[in-house]
Design a protein around this nucleic acid. Sequence first.
DNA 1: ATTGCTTCCTGAGCGC
DNA 2: TGCGCTCAGGAAGCAA
Length: 269
Amino acid sequence: MPELPEVQCVVDTLKPINLKEIEDVIVLDKKLREPVQNDLKSNLKDKKILEVQRRGKFIIFKLNNGFIVSHLGMTGKFLIQKSIIENKFNRIIIKFKDNTYLIYNDIRKFGFITYENNMEDNKYIKKLGIEPLSDNLNGEVLFNLSRNNKKNIKQFLLDQSYIVGLGNIYVIELMYLCGIDPLSKAKDLTKDICNKLSSEIKRILTDSIKLGGSSISDYRDANDKEGSFQDNFFAYGRKFDDKGHKIERIKQNGRSTYYCPICQNNNLT
DNA sequence: ATTGCTTCCTGAGCGC
DNA sequence: TGCGCTCAGGAAGCAA
């Protein structure tokens, strides 16, 4: 579900919890992707939230002592509430000393929250690749990363150890925008396509963040507000593109790919 | 070392 | 109305 823009919008809307102190943690369901730690409550009690950051699709809450690391999976949400709004998918409730709440709500339970004493060598974070909105990503870096890479291009872009933050939707959109045949291999990318891809990655992610991300069904920010970037999709979920070309839908590695066989042929026009 | 299939979980939407 | 099927912003874990 949430890809980089959605996670960034959650992080941005979590700003009001900065400097709040945790009074209590109520675990309603321990069976998340990463089972809720037995000592989560004791580790979080009396801690102060200093800052909320994003790394890839992970959310990192920096505390005065230690960190919370979280991933939203497909349907995870963080919601700031003045009083608890009952919902059967609320999984963890963090109560602050000012009597406001941070709710972790997750229908499918593919997300998680863990407490970490330090972030050095964190098993999730240490595997992550380049932040696409940083200067560390450019066409040349992308070209070098994809050399000799036999993965198909979609798998390559989805792999969080190369570039972080892209998920199924944005990869589909990017391949459409750059005229990339989804059946081609990463090593088939030319320098020109890598340059184009790099700039389109930055543009589409930035544009989506401005529009509050994409809400397909479940995604909401910490204020329970929807994004609107889904109105700007060129390929994902469409039957025809803007040119009237039929959009084909195929399965790649178990996930849907929408693409235009006419336009997506790896030739820059 | 890679590739690709299955798994975790719940709900929506479809055809019959 | 209800059943059975497929699909859904992710990604670890496994077998081949």
